[in-house]
Lab assay of single mutants.
Amino acid sequence: NQASVVANQLIPISTHLTLVMMRSEVVTPVGIPAEDIPRLVSMQVNRAVPLGTTLMPDMVKGYA
């Protein structure tokens, strides 16, 4: 099972991601792979992401 990136807190819209905001967890459905966490740092979310939500490629500007 592959770990995905999950929000560690509420991430407001247009926030630049930091390591503190993300954790890796095995979830269904599978989202952005956990090994991409370093790549996600300083990218922006294009919507509010609630605590515990799996980050999907379409939620992060410039990821997909």
Rank of each mutant, 00 (worst) to 15 (best):
N1C: 07
N1A: 15
Q2V: 10
Q2S: 13
Q2W: 11
A3W: 10
S4W: 03
S4M: 02
S4C: 05
V5L: 03
V6C: 06
V6F: 02
V6A: 02
V6N: 01
V6L: 07
V6W: 03
A7L: 03
A7F: 02
N8A: 14
N8L: 04
N8E: 07
N8S: 15
Q9D: 07
Q9M: 14
L10A: 14
L10Q: 15
I11H: 01
I11Y: 03
I11K: 01
I11C: 03
I11V: 05
I11T: 00
P12M: 06
P12Y: 05
P12Q: 07
P12C: 05
P12H: 09
I13R: 13
S14P: 01
S14G: 12
S14Y: 14
S14Q: 12
T15P: 00
T15S: 11
T15Q: 08
H16P: 15
H16N: 09
H16M: 14
H16R: 14
L17T: 00
L17H: 00
L17P: 00
T18Q: 11
T18W: 03
T18V: 06
T18H: 04
L19C: 11
L19P: 07
L19H: 08
V20S: 14
M21K: 01
M22I: 08
S24L: 05
E25Y: 08
V26W: 09
V26S: 10
V26H: 12
V26K: 07
V26A: 09
V27S: 05
V27L: 04
V27Y: 03
T28E: 15
T28Y: 10
V30C: 13
V30P: 13
G31L: 02
G31Q: 00
G31F: 02
I32M: 03
I32D: 00
P33F: 09
A34F: 07
A34H: 06
A34S: 13
A34P: 05
A34D: 08
A34W: 06
D36C: 12
D36R: 08
D36F: 11
D36W: 08
D36T: 07
D36G: 05
D36A: 13
D36L: 10
I37K: 06
I37F: 02
I37G: 03
I37W: 03
I37M: 12
R39W: 09
R39M: 10
R39Y: 11
L40A: 00
L40W: 03
L40H: 01
V41I: 10
V41S: 02
S42H: 11
S42Y: 12
S42Q: 10
S42A: 14
S42W: 14
S42L: 09
S42C: 15
M43R: 09
M43L: 11
M43S: 05
Q44C: 12
Q44I: 11
V45H: 00
V45T: 11
V45L: 09
V45S: 05
N46Q: 13
R47H: 07
R47Q: 07
A48L: 14
A48S: 15
A48R: 11
V49D: 02
V49P: 02
V49L: 08
P50Q: 10
P50C: 08
L51F: 13
G52Y: 04
T53E: 12
T53W: 14
T53Y: 15
T53I: 10
T54N: 02
L55M: 11
L55C: 03
L55I: 12
M56G: 04
M56L: 11
P57T: 05
D58P: 06
D58H: 10
D58A: 09
D58V: 09
D58T: 10
M59R: 00
M59H: 09
V60L: 07
V60N: 02
V60A: 02
V60H: 01
V60F: 05
V60P: 01
V60K: 00
K61N: 12
K61M: 14
G62E: 08
G62D: 11
G62P: 05
G62R: 06
Y63V: 04
Y63C: 04
Y63F: 09
A64R: 10
